[in-house]
């Protein structure tokens, strides 16, 4: 049984085949990257995996359990977290508040206990704060703990979004273009953190990424897509030297 399986995924929007028959498996503890030129269907696959819309056909399995057709809020419970290409944060809240919402699925106290702020609630609150602080330390966000998200620079917001995802305690982290909009320095930090996610936290990473230097640095395996179909699957070096991949990116050689 593999950790994560996409089985013959296809989706059509009207007459447009956005993704056709894509299958892959992600092993526990690896960094798996999906690449492809614009319009290749990368983000569509991401949205399928995070259950935003159901596939026209095919199945998705996580830890041996089929998750196709579940409501999107269930993925957090299963231990899957995601970030967005265009950053989706709670803008009118502080960084710490954003992270604490990440603990939502771990809160088990009852409404009446919370209203009275009873000892179990107090203990849980401390535990959640500790979990959030751990992530803050991990991603060096101490400086921004009490800043409102709306006022932060783009690069920091990107890190805050990753931090919030990590606070949910994921086994599988989905990253949608983690380096988009970052300057080379920030992009370098991001690569560093993705490596740490895998090595230090033991989190499996499935990501979509454009920046090929980041891809080759962190990925164990790479899947190349073009026009919704699988082109090549293998190590970063193998995929980048595959003639079909080169053709998809650069056009046919005369």
């Amino acid at each position: 049984m593999s950790f994560f399986t996409a089985e013959n995924l296809s989706i059509q929007f009207g007459g447009v085949k956005a993704v056709t028959n894509v299958s892959f498996e992600v092993e526990r503890g690896e960094v798996f990257t999906i690449i492809g030129p614009n319009g290749a269907g990368k983000t569509t696959i991401f949205n399928l995996i995070s259950l935003i819309y159901p596939p026209t056909s095919g199945r998705i399995l996580f830890e041996g359990q089929e998750i196709t057709g579940l409501a999107p809020h269930r993925v957090a419970n299963l231990g899957i977290a995601r970030t967005f290409q265009n950053i989706e944060l709670f803008e009118h809240a502080t960084v710490l508040q954003n992270l604490l919402i990440g603990r939502h699925t771990h809160r088990t106290t009852a409404l009446w206990q919370e209203l009275l702020f009873l000892p179990p609630v107090r203990r849980a609150e401390i535990a959640h704060r500790e979990a959030a602080e751990k992530v803050i330390d991990f991603l060096d966000l101490q400086h921004y703990r009490d800043s409102f998200v709306a006022g932060l620079p783009y690069g920091v917001r990107k890190v805050v979004e990753l931090a919030r995802a990590l606070t949910t305690g994921p086994k599988l982290q989905l990253l949608d273009e983690p380096s988009s909009g970052l300057n080379p320095e920030e992009s370098d930090d991001m690569a560093f953190w993705i490596e740490d996610l895998k090595k230090d936290l033991g989190i499996t990473v499935l990501m979509v990424e454009h920046d090929m230097s980041l891809v080759s640095r962190v990925s164990d395996r790479v899947l190349a897509l073009n026009q919704g179909e699988m082109l090549a699957l293998g190590t970063s070096r193998e995929v980048q030297s595959d003639p079909r991949v080169i053709e998809a990116y650069l056009g046919k050689q005369e």
Partner: peptide, 20 residues
Amino acid sequence: RIGIAMQATSQNQLAAYYMG
């Protein structure tokens, strides 16, 4: 918990989904 979840939802529904 549910009240805070409501606030979160009102700020960003998409993000709220992935907080569970």
